[in-house]
Design a protein around this nucleic acid. Structure first.
Ligand code: FES
Ligand code: FES
Lengths: 139, 139
DNA sequence: TCTAAAGCGGACAAAATAAGTCCGATTTAA
DNA sequence: TTAAATCGGACTTATTTTGTCCGCTTTAGA
């Protein structure tokens, strides 16, 4: 239903948090505790962010995660793709067989066009705009 | 995962079909047959479109559905809202209790802002742009 | 007036996806 | 050597989506 997954919400919270604690290493346990997130769940999300290079992971004791680039360089699309994989409006975009209507579908092409425009649009939401509103809580 | 539901796909197919058969009354059975859609399912979708006024329903024998306005006046947002209800990126937008993180959530406000922009954007995709590509198949 | 063809709507069942849990393995600072 | 951390696979549970069933109402036409 065009809804953000919990995984994406968790990723955004974590990234925003790390932005505030600039350059500090933060562990999954800390984040999970602070934001009431199931920690194993958040662990998976952080791993996904690390695999996509949005964050750097530090192994071993006193390890954790760190932003690998400033939030200034990140957009919503980056986060979505990192945690949910490529953005597809319809299933048959990945595997044609997955749509029973594939052969007779009159909407596939126009939907693909929309998907591409939406993809661009998702890249226009900069994470740095998340700063003000979240910071305002602290004032 | 930000994917169009089958219900929305079915609605788009039906609307496009009705646009081509301008003003003719078309039954769920016909549509379901032509596009390989489970007919009870399509029935529900058409009912939703009728409730939202996008189509007119004609009861009784030889009944069916008809566009109540030209496709020219419809946008993707209309269809989404008709079949899935109001567009919400996060659950707590409807019911705060539904997000465990509600109290500590640092992303709610910025996400709401994005939701509103996306809502506008969805209203910019006109269904008439679906015509060309689908018509081209018939040439 | 009867019948068959349609839409209506509620309840249900099945399937798919998302969310969350568990656990053993590895890495590394102290 | 130990404890604190990430890693990743397998698994379970919850939620949502998709599809089905069935009895009801409406209406054109024989
Ligand atoms: S969108 Fe997949 S077949 Fe139409
Ligand atoms: S979006 Fe619902 S609590 Fe953050």
């Amino acid at each position: 239903m065009l809804r953000l997954s919990k995984r994406v919400e968790y990723a955004l919270m974590a990234l925003l948090h790390m932005d505030e604690e600039a350059d500090q290493v933060v562990s999954v346990a800390e984040l999970a505790d602070q934001y009431d997130i199931p920690s194993d769940m958040l662990g998976k999300v952080m791993q996904a962010l690390a695999r996509s290079g949005l964050v750097k992971s530090i192994h071993g004791a006193h390890g954790g995660y760190q932003l690998s680039t400033s939030l200034d360089n990140l957009v919503l699309g980056d986060v979505l793709e990192a945690v949910e994989g490529p953005f597809r409006l319809v299933k048959c975009q990945e595997t044609p067989e997955s749509c029973d209507q594939y052969k007779v579908c009159p909407i596939r092409e126009p939907v693909l066009a929309i998907q591409n425009q939406l993809l661009d649009y998702l890249a226009s939401f900069e994470l740095k705009t998340f700063r003000e509103t979240s910071k305002s809580k602290k004032i």
